[in-house]
Amino acid sequence: MFELIFFSLLNGIVTGLLLFMLASGLTLIFSMMGVLNFAHASFYMLGAYLAYTISLYLGFWVGLLVAPILVGLLGAMVERYGLRYVHRWGHVAELIFTFGLAFLIEEVVQFIWGKDTKAYHEPEILQFPLFTFFGQDFPAYKAFMLFISIAIFIGLLLILTKSRVGLIIQAAITKPNMTAMLGHNVPLVFMSVFGVGCALAGVAGVIAGPALGTFPGMAVVLGSIVFVIVVVGGLGSLIGAFVASLLIGLLQTFAIALDYSVNDLLQVFNITTDVDSALRDLWTLSLPQIAPILPYLLLVLILIFRPTGLFGKRET
């Protein structure tokens, strides 16, 4: 049991931090422009595929550096030449624009790279078990993922709170018009933040590709969960996104690890259930089976009881 808890804790943190890399960009973009970027996870997928192609010729490390930059540039162009035009017709148009973009990117990826799973592997230098605990290996690559995500979190936090750029960004988030009046180029700030947000998603894709698989469905499996994190954490709050990512990561891992069913819960209260009753599907429902919907349950509860999210200041 301790083995299970220990590894679930580690896995949960790795998953959570990976989610954070996606959520951090999304929450900044959302709070700044009011746009729910549905295509955010698609940039994550693009990052993985671009890094895969680069890694075939130049190795993993070049891919890790170059792919996010390419994705970031693409994101900036999407903002400059797409979103900025669409913005004139309001938020709904922007929303639909990113929605369409997500499908477009998925189709383009399938068109270029095909439908099958790509053999995108960890660099050989990281292909060893870092330590073995209770006979179970912990891969070094997972530790590398942990390290990169924590570095990015600290870096982002420092930039946003300590640097001049961070001040302008924070100002542009809360009072865009006032910031523009003071002579700052707000559209440029928007474009940069969108680009950096996409680049972060790209980084997440590059490091998640080898671990979670590089296939055309990779954006879909992560896409919706990232929105949950942004809302649960609170809009525009980096700390909120961080806490919510870890929370969701751990929630999902532990829900799979712990085999409890509704029946077990009822037995705690000394209620016995009838095996043949019509509701028996409900009694036998186990935690791993409902694991995928738990984050959405949390989303609904948060929206009802704390619409600003855990750390947010604005209403969603």
Partner: peptide
């Protein structure tokens, strides 16, 4: 089906169960 982004928690569980063999009908990703 098709919604699990990371199979590590399942693998951890299988490992912890001490199974000597695994049977699966999974396909694709």
């Amino acid at each position: 089906i098709g919604k699990v982004k990371d199979f590590t928690p399942y693998a951890t569980k299988i490992r912890a169960s001490g199974a000597d063999a695994v049977i699966t009908g999974n396909w694709g990703a």
